Amino acid sequence: MDYGIEDLIIPVDGSDHAEAAVRFAVRLSRATGAELHLAHAFPGSVQALMERIGTQPGHTSSERMTAEAFEALRNGSARRALQRARQQLEPDQTASEHVLDGDPAEAISAFVGDGHGVQVVMGRRGLGRVRELLVGSVSERVIHRVPGPVTVVTAGHDGGETDDGHAEPLVVPVDGSDSACRAAAHAATVARCTGARIHLLHAFPGSPQEVPLLSGDLGGSADVGPFAEEAFAQLGDDSAREAFDSARDTMADTGATGLDIVEVRRRGEPAHAVLDYLREIGPAEIIIGRRGLGRVQELLVGSVSQKLLHGARCPVTVIG
């Protein structure tokens, strides 16, 4: 499996969030040598534009818009978005520029293709209404469509270096699932280039009472009585060790050596545990798998990625 990052695709719409995404990608490009691609998505027709902004086909506004007016609107939107994005590049950097036709999530995922060696870096939200057709709230739909890593960046929280000049740490929630291992592998790829410390974080409930659907998955039968505290603590120990070992094995498979890795155990619901940990350590980047083990083991990582996308202000990279 190839863990390298060859191309960084940055959807842009002229918003502050998109500019923050460009700055994040610029730093990552410096570290990895990946090529930069600025992409602006716009509806491919007058009808698609009107549908996108909530005007029904046949409305007088769409009937009055000529092909020339539509093309001018499209070109102007692309020009402004790409110009603002271009200003975030460093003087000696270049980026290819692309204007894509269609729904943003669909256009971006089609542009990404099979995702080999590609990472998408995009703003958390766009300018709203008309410009939501550009990037806006499309980030979650892109995450579900794109096979490779997607980083979501918020204006004002676009990462960088710590006060002592080191790369910001990478916090990777792990649960032993294939998805969490892929996130760990991506973290290893980034850390190999940036020197960032990797924080493997495993969250587990503090007591059986915190597990809403305790079932045979954890107890050995479908009809499970209350867990003894000692047995439940041992279950947490075993879960953490399996998660950490799986993540370390996968990171070793990338060929990265000399990584600075710490293992962190927390009690409680995973998304809350991650957010609390971020408050302890300060600025960081989250790298998380999109899916965990499911069912009761969703208490480990599972669908926490969506909660972190909404709750964390730091860059969040989701691995499909």
Rank of each mutant, 00 (worst) to 15 (best):
A107T: 01
T162N: 02
A188V: 10
L201R: 09
T94R: 13
A252K: 11
V174C: 10
A85Q: 07
R313Y: 15
I261P: 01
D253N: 05
D164N: 09
I261V: 14
D253G: 09
R80G: 03
H116W: 10
S215I: 10
T60E: 15
E285Q: 15
A252W: 02
I143W: 01
G14R: 02
D217Q: 12
D260C: 15
F244Q: 02
L309N: 06
V146Q: 00
L259Y: 13
A20G: 12
G54K: 07
E298S: 14
L293R: 07
D16Y: 04
A69K: 08
G165P: 00
E35Y: 08
D223I: 00
G258H: 03
D13W: 02
Q83I: 06
V262H: 15
H37W: 14
Q297E: 11
V153M: 11
L309Y: 03
Y3P: 00
R23G: 04
E68N: 09
E263A: 07
V190E: 00
M122T: 10
G102M: 15
A72N: 07
S177R: 01
P57Q: 06
F70R: 00
P43G: 06
E35R: 13
D2T: 13
L200V: 15
P212L: 06
T60Y: 15
E280Y: 03
G289Q: 05
R290T: 10
A81V: 02
G126H: 08
G128I: 01
L213S: 08
D2A: 13
P270D: 01
V120R: 01
A231V: 14
L278Q: 13
E168H: 05
E71M: 10
V304R: 12
L133A: 12
V26K: 05
E263H: 09
D2K: 12
S62P: 03
L218N: 14
K307A: 09
A69H: 09
V211E: 05
S109K: 02
H98I: 09
L213E: 05
L200H: 15
V26G: 04
S139G: 05
E97V: 10
A196E: 06
G320K: 08
R79G: 14
V174N: 09
F204M: 12
G255N: 05
